[in-house]
């Protein structure tokens, strides 16, 4: 297939995934902002939402320091701001532009999801949303990614177009999970454990909620929420679709399918397998011992490197 087509498909699904992740981040920030906070340790969940979304620099330039970030600014910046290249609205715009460029490679069902949600997005006001409107908006965004993944899964031929589409979603998803961990790793560290107050519980639960894993947690561990188990679930648990391990299982499979179809392995495949192996051969104790923060930072770097390799090898 055309390199540009593969590139558009790959980015199309990355942007759909990104929009979904942003919606979850806003969801969780909103929830945490209702939670009573002890006055001696004030936290700013809205600032940390911006940090997790990975656009702190642009935000600060526009609205001032993160510590003073407020709900209105963060919601409008992450959800609607056209000057923020990663706002949900821009994700939808770029996704649709990509989709238009490769309409011939999409099934009509996939196009329909992208186009109709792009049309629906315009029906939401872009500022001063009431809480209910915001909730409805976030639900709509999450539903769009579900519909898109569903359409992809149900209607697309299993060939390189499909694999590039899925590869994009997994790269983006791994990046998002890793960034959530990166921003929140300190609440998972052992020294915080003895605090164990209600605030910590909310923090841990909110991490799980931001990747829709609170229910899954209980099913997997049959235990109360503990920080090292949260980390285990999100990093190493292969059964958990948003864990780093699961993303890399899927990513490796997509890349191997591509290599199989083209009859040629390359650096992207090797890099994906290396990271995949690193995620299978570790225990969470190991990771905590050698430093959770370092592990996550390294993962984010490697994930970016893989994205660059995929681009180099196939998309240009």
């Amino acid at each position: 297939m055309l390199s540009r087509t593969a590139e558009n498909l790959y980015w199309l699904s990355r942007y759909v995934e990104r929009a979904d992740c942003l919606a979850r981040i806003l969801d969780v920030a909103q929830r945490l902002s209702y939670t009573p906070v002890p006055t001696e340790a004030p936290t700013n969940e809205w600032g940390s939402a911006v940090l997790t979304a990975g656009c702190a620099e642009e935000f600060v330039a526009r609205h001032g320091p993160l510590e003073e970030a407020n709900e209105d600014h963060v919601v409008s910046f992450l959800a609607f701001d056209l000057d923020n290249p990663s706002s949900i609205r821009n994700c939808f715009e770029v996704a649709r532009t990509n989709a238009r460029s490769v309409r011939t490679a999409l099934t009509s069902e996939m196009w329909d999801v992208i186009n109709s949600s792009w049309i629906e997005l315009r029906s939401f006001p872009d500022k001063a949303l009431s809480r209910e409107e915001l909730a409805r908006f976030l639900a709509f965004v999450k539903e769009t990614s579900l519909r898109f993944d569903g359409a992809t899964f149900r209607t697309m031929l299993r060939n390189d177009a499909y694999w590039f589409t899925r590869a994009g979603a997994h790269v983006e998803r791994a990046d998002n999970t890793a960034r959530i961990l990166d921003v929140k790793y300190h609440v998972l560290l052992p020294e915080q454990e003895h605090v164990g107050g209600p605030l910590d519980y909310f923090q841990w639960a909110s991490i799980l909620r931001s990747v829709s894993a609170l229910t899954a947690f209980h099913w997997v561990y049959r235990d109360s929420v503990k920080p090292w188990l949260v980390a285990d679930l999100l990093i190493l648990n292969r059964a958990m679709p948003r864990s780093l391990a699961s993303c890399y299982d899927n990513l490796s499979r997509c890349l191997d399918d591509i290599a199989g179809a083209y009859g040629r392995q390359g650096p992207a495949q090797r890099l994906a397998r290396t990271t995949q192996a690193r995620l299978s051969n570790r225990t969470i104790e190991d990771i905590f011992q050698s430093g959770l923060h370092e592990f996550i930072s390294e993962f984010i770097t490697d994930n970016n490197k893989l994205a660059a390799e995929i681009t180099e090898q196939y998309l240009v």
Partner: peptide, 10 residues
Amino acid sequence: DNVVFMRTTE
């Protein structure tokens, strides 16, 4: 060499 090609993933 006066031949037109398209860039593909292969």
